[in-house]
Write a protein that binds this DNA or RNA. Structure first.
Lengths: 357, 357
DNA sequence: CTGAAAGCGCTTACAG
DNA sequence: CTGAAAGCGCTTACAG
């Protein structure tokens, strides 16, 4: 028996089922089928049913690429993070995913690895994919010109945690200055007079600068002097904390408390103290920043400043959805207030043993 | 002065610059411009230069949606994970992102939250977006029928860490059975005779079942009996570890060592021991599974089974790229051999103090 | 190496 | 509520 090519099993399997096929099968027009697929209310129930049945029968898969293309719209949001290791992103991404998903949006994820060049290329790729919005944790030295193209294409952008002056983008973050003040005030109230700041110092980056400001101003509130020797720059990871505390312990006149840039560093400080034979908390008070999960399970539990990263995700998604919905306004700054979480690491201090022994 | 609408600033800003605009500006045809954009070798350098200049001048952004649509191809891979909290994913995603990015692929990320229904909907959305491949960590009770549609559409799928019998998908994982054997043998060699297994027991899931098998068979190698009371099911998180060790410590005849389903549970066990006044490692030997970063900074450092999750990412990306490239073959199983990493938590045992005191 | 024409699978007015 | 026609911005043969 001779078959025409279109009737061959192989040929038909290679061919995608289209809305036209569904319409033919259901005995309606393509336009009608399209309305059914998109859940229009103005379709007779009996017609709706027929079309749905044909869709199931034929295994039709809606082609969003074609739909986006035709309507020149998009349901894809681009999210660019610096890396996957930082626990900060997990709560944030979980919330953002949840909320965007609810509204039928999908997201493209990119990673900048703290490289300005990679960030630029990732962003360009996302524009090529016609995302309808971008949520970005900018790398440290991001220039405002990065956002020129986004503005020209009228694609809303939202920055997370790090501001870029002149970007014209919305911003979600916290008041790092206040957070640092809360931490340092608490330590002073606990009786500490010499308090180290352990963390990065990247000039021009607000998230860094504000912490230092808060640290200094809180000390000054109590008439305490800022000793530059107690400001210890270090890489923002566990190792950085371990190395920094070794440095601290060798100072002429060591501090009795450490306020750390983030929890990861504070955990490094905890480890580092043990490595040197000290008891974290008892010999040296410690306060972190972020309130990651590990702060509750480390011994001693870590006092920290919670910045509610899950809330950042909620606000970022909400604001982005508003912008995608067409909201026109000047750039918005959403600041989630930080809160001090007091745990054992800052309230069990017994004094430093003689270091020079 | 009367202007035609097309000449208005506003109208032209709303209109996307197309390849035709670039071609017009450069004085070539659209086909030529298309070749330049896609980096064809068969274009005169002078023509290439003219087109590139026009692209920059006009701020042209390549429209991948249109290109994908026309060529009926795709450069987007879908990745579905169960959640963002598990550190397992971080190394894996980092490698996958890197390698796909090198090859000009982008990825859509979805989260199943261990819900079968959500997993199904996320997958459907990805198909609608015409991904060219799917990398999936399936939820525990995933049915092989989930993959029928993928097969019909000839979209390659790859499973990470959990097999689904009959799925027809490629698989990247480790030998959980061997990993458990390595851990338990080590504990027996250290003199332990009563060794608990703390972790989930989800029947039908190979990643779980294989661990139990390895645990039992290693004990039997040494002629030790398997005591069902020492197999403690618990949620796969820190709290689960904390609660499980409390249970263990109340047993009539408690074990002297715990082999844990993963590092997070082992960290919970460590915390739990301290909470009860015991010294982890000295009073109870502990071995984890995964080799996450935290195992090196906890006190005592955690002995664990490394399964090289970064290597999973490399292999998954490589295999997926092969499939996307058209590789036809039966489903492949890529097994990364596990390795025991001995640290302090399993080699400083001094014996359990009298529990019933 | 370049140009003219067709078409990917939808959505969008516009009639009926 | 339904149908016929146009077109989104590219790529793909096919001639020249």
């Amino acid at each position: 028996m001779v078959r025409k090519k279109e009737e061959c099993g192989l040929a038909s399997r290679d061919k995608r089922v289209t809305l036209q096929d569904v319409a033919d099968d259901a005995g309606v027009s393509r336009a009608t089928a399209s309305l059914v697929v998109r859940g229009s209310k103005s379709i007779k129930p009996s017609t709706h049913k027929k079309v749905i049945e044909s869709i199931e029968k034929l295994g039709y898969v809606y082609d969003r690429v074609a739909a986006s293309f035709r309507s020149q719209s998009s349901s894809t949001v681009g999210i660019v993070i610096t890396d996957f290791e930082n626990p900060f992103y997990h709560q944030m991404l979980t919330k953002v995913e949840d909320m965007l998903y609810e509204q039928q949006f999908t997201f493209l994820l990119g990673m900048s690895s703290e490289s300005r060049e990679k960030q630029e290329r990732v962003l360009e790729t996302m524009l090529e994919h016609r995302v309808c919005g971008i949520i970005l944790t900018p790398v440290v030295d991001t220039q405002p010109t990065l956002f020129n193209k986004l503005r020209a294409l009228q694609i809303p952008a939202l920055l997370m945690g790090r501001e870029v002056a002149g970007s014209g983008a919305d911003y979600v973050g916290t008041d790092y200055r206040l957070g640092s003040q809360l931490a340092v005030r608490h330590l002073v109230e606990q009786g500490h007079r010499r308090i180290a700041y352990i963390g990065g110092m990247l000039p021009g980056n607000t998230a860094y600068q504000e912490r230092i400001d808060g640290y200094c101003s809180a000390l000054q509130e109590y008439g305490l002097e800022v000793d530059p020797k107690l400001i210890i720059p270090t890489p923002l990871n566990r190792e950085g904390g371990i190395r920094a505390i070794q440095e601290v312990l060798q100072l002429e006149n060591p501090p009795t408390a450490c306020f750390c840039h983030n929890d990861i560093i504070a955990l490094g400080v905890t480890i580092g103290l043990r490595l040197q034979g000290f008891i974290p908390g008892e010999h040296m008070a410690i306060v972190g920043f972020d309130n990651i999960l590990e702060t509750e399970t480390v011994e001693p539990k870590l006092t920290t400043v919670s910045v509610f990263h899950d809330q950042w995700g909620v606000e970022a998604a909400r604001q982005m959805l508003d912008r995608i919905g067409g909201l026109q306004s000047d750039p918005v700054k959403i600041i989630i207030p930080p809160k001090l979480i007091v745990r054992k690491s800052s309230v069990c201090f017994k004094g430093l043993p003689n270091l020079k022994a």
